[in-house]
Amino acid sequence: MKADVRLGANAFDPAAELARFLEAHPASGGIASFIGQVRAESGADAVLELELSYYPPLTLPGMKTLADEALAQWPLDGLLILHRVGAMQPGEPIVLVAAAARHRRDAFLAADFVMDHLKSDAWFWKRERTAAGWRWVEPRAEDHTDRLRWKTVSAI
């Protein structure tokens, strides 16, 4: 089983992608998915635009390695990782992760594992535009601690 891992500069439709994924895995009893989107907020601090930059020699290869680690860890029937790069507007999807397995627990864990590692390890740099202008987003301590949760699961 090979994961479907993609990086794209264009907007994608999570519902359509998920429908295709469901259709491709009729034998899977459990499918867990996660969608991350640009927060649409109001007020002075509201993000008006988000930009994700990446480094082609590392970003997609790193995501594929992450998918392989998830596949080695849990018995999955399918794994989908879609990630946007470039400029995004509030409300637009950034990331879609879906894992298909015979039983729900493996699907939940694999999707959670992939998201925690995408947030803390993947080669993305994020900047936001608010009314005050552009600012680079610094790494969050929570993302690091979220990743450490998996240290007890494996040596990854």
Partner: peptide
């Protein structure tokens, strides 16, 4: 395209690409 530890002695040749990667800020 390969992440390396800083090595002052590392030899860089014609055509090499050196990338400086600050801490990542999440997908």
């Amino acid at each position: 395209g390969l992440v390396t530890a800083y090595d002052p002695e590392l030899v860089l040749a014609d055509g090499d690409e050196v990338a400086f990667l600050p801490p990542v800020s999440g997908g």
